[in-house]
């Protein structure tokens, strides 16, 4: 530490944040890779429909496509908000 260092504001250690954000987004993009192009669109439209009835977060809807030997499984999961009653449209 230099004696003049206190004059400079110390930048935040942001590499950890970068790593965590990348880990999540890369995993998410890999899971949809090679899948049909309509998957993100499908997810957004589903989200819109669900939000008509329930006030859910943007990332509450998860659509994944799994390939097993010979067949594909489209899995849809929706995380509903806790406690709050559903808003009626």
């Amino acid at each position: 530490m230099g004696i003049l260092d206190f004059l400079k504001r110390k930048p935040e250690a942001s590499a950890g944040v970068a790593k965590e954000r990348l880990r999540i987004i890369v995993a998410q993009e890999r899971s949809t890779r090679g899948g049909p192009d309509y998957l993100p669109l499908l997810r957004n439209e589903l989200l819109e429909v669900i939000r008509k009835y329930v006030n859910v977060d943007v990332d509450a809807v998860n659509v994944t496509l799994d390939r097993d030997s010979g067949h594909e499984v489209l899995e849809l999961s929706v995380a509903l908000p806790e406690g709050k009653p559903a808003t009626s449209a």
């Binding site: 930048p11 935040e12 250690a13 942001s14 590499a15 950890g16 970068a18 790593k19 990348l22 880990r23 890369v26």
Partner: peptide
């Protein structure tokens, strides 16, 4: 801690 390390990039 301001930049991703070699290991970080390799891990990701």
């Amino acid at each position: 801690g301001e930049m991703l390390s070699v290991k970080d990039v390799e891990d990701i």
